[in-house]
């Protein structure tokens, strides 16, 4: 994969990075299969270029842009973020990307835009997992407008100083570090500004298990997995678990949810 230059930032400076090998071989990307090793194997032939993203909905006028245009909207930055999966494991990933806000400013949404919806690429011919009715394709994720404007939310186009590997969501994916990993829609093909809260893929698949907000919250247990602690990938066989922090440790997002019952709005 090609190198990708980016400005360093102070995010996650003290964190020990998960290895490139682990980040690119242990993936949840059901379009390429439900096994963790499937995406690395099945996404080899996937073509992330050329790529056009449709931007539509509640905006002055629908637009499209390609990756070259996208990465010119703002300087690329390296952001070292913790990624907490709803399954109880976590990684530390040096993403390269740009603030989602840069795209929103460029798109000029109207006053009707209350939410933003991300639709992933859906191509059963080249995505073997998308041929199976495991999830309701295409994969849809969403954020409330103020969440999307939060400076931590980025569109990632690379990691570890390189162009984003296919299995990690090439050419462009969402990264929202205070939410569970599944919020990070991969291979985004459409970005839609909408008035109503989108019905996201995992909410559709299991409304009792997955919520729209999906904020990392050690107090709200998943029916299957403990959310009060997590296993750090790459820490070794005997490392044990570490305590999961509210909002995955990104306390600055707390004000987005002032007055909200986060147990109900999980």
């Amino acid at each position: 994969t090609a190198a990708l230059a980016a400005r360093k930032t102070t995010y996650g400076q003290d964190e020990k990075l998960t290895s490139y090998e682990d980040i690119t071989s242990y993936n949840n990307y059901y379009e390429f299969g439900t096994g963790k090793a499937d995406p690395a194997r099945e996404a080899v032939l996937f073509k992330p270029a050329p790529w056009t993203i449709k931007v539509e909905g509640a905006i002055k006028q629908p637009k499209t842009l390609d990756i070259e245009q996208l990465i010119k909207l703002a300087p690329l930055e390296e952001r070292i973020y913790r990624m907490r999966c709803v399954e109880g494991w976590s990684m530390v990933i040096p993403w390269i990307g740009l603030p989602l806000k840069a795209l929103i400013d460029w798109a000029q949404p109207t006053g009707d835009a209350k939410y933003i919806e991300f639709v992933s690429h859906n191509d059963p011919r080249h995505m073997p997992g998308a041929r199976l009715p495991v999830l309701d394709w295409p994969y849809v994720e969403g954020l409330r407008m103020d969440e999307a404007m939060q400076p931590l939310a980025i569109l990632a186009v690379g990691l570890y100083g390189k162009v984003l590997p296919n299995q990690n969501g090439a050419p462009v994916r969402l990264v929202v570090p205070w939410k569970y990993g599944f919020k990070g829609a991969k291979a985004i093909s459409t970005i839609r500004f909408v008035e109503k809260m989108p019905t996201t893929t995992w909410v559709k698949a299991g409304p009792r298990e997955y919520g729209f907000y999906a904020n990392v919250n050690p107090q709200v247990d998943h029916p299957r997995w403990t959310q009060s602690s997590e296993k750090r990938i790459g820490a070794g066989l005997f490392a044990g678990r570490i305590k999961t922090r509210m909002f995955n440790g990104y306390d600055e997002v707390g004000q987005l949810y002032a007055g909200m019952d986060l147990k109900k709005n999980f």
Binding site: D221, P223, R224, T226, S228, K231, L237, F238, G240, R241
Partner: peptide, 20 residues
């Protein structure tokens, strides 16, 4: 051992809270 490092309160919680 490997998953819960014999952390009995955590193990108890996991057993009681998660049907599987």
């Amino acid at each position: 051992w490997l998953d819960y490092s014999f952390d009995w309160p955590d193990i108890g919680h996991d057993i009681v809270k998660h049907p599987y």
